[in-house]
Simulated scan of single mutants.
Amino acid sequence: MTDFYSTIVNFFQEGGLFIYPISIVLVLGLVITIERWMFLSRERVRNIKAFDGFLPLLRTTDMEKMQLYTRENTAPVTRVIGCGLDMMKVTKHRADIEHSMSEGMLETMPRFQSRTSYLSVLANIATLLGLLGTIVGLIGAFTAVASADPAEKSSLLSQSISVAMNTTAFGLIAAIPLLVFHALLQNKTASIVSSIEMAAVKFLNIMTYNRQIFAGAAVQVDTSQAEKTQSEAS
Rank of each mutant, 00 (worst) to 15 (best):
1 M>S: 10
2 T>P: 00
8 I>E: 04
9 V>H: 01
12 F>D: 05
13 Q>V: 03
14 E>A: 12
18 F>M: 14
20 Y>E: 00
21 P>G: 06
22 I>N: 01
33 T>M: 12
45 V>D: 12
45 V>C: 06
48 I>N: 07
50 A>N: 08
52 D>R: 11
54 F>K: 10
55 L>A: 13
70 T>R: 07
70 T>P: 11
72 E>V: 04
73 N>T: 08
74 T>F: 07
78 T>M: 14
85 L>C: 08
87 M>D: 04
94 R>V: 08
98 E>K: 08
102 S>K: 11
107 E>V: 00
108 T>V: 15
112 F>M: 11
115 R>Y: 10
122 L>P: 09
123 A>E: 03
125 I>F: 13
131 L>K: 08
134 T>Q: 05
136 V>P: 00
140 G>R: 12
143 T>E: 14
143 T>S: 15
145 V>K: 10
150 P>V: 10
150 P>G: 12
152 E>G: 01
153 K>I: 05
159 Q>L: 08
160 S>L: 06
161 I>N: 04
163 V>K: 08
165 M>C: 03
166 N>S: 11
170 F>W: 06
172 L>S: 04
173 I>V: 14
174 A>V: 02
176 I>Y: 01
179 L>Q: 06
185 L>V: 01
191 S>M: 01
192 I>H: 08
202 K>E: 15
203 F>E: 08
204 L>E: 02
207 M>A: 15
211 R>K: 15
215 A>G: 14
224 S>K: 10
229 T>M: 08
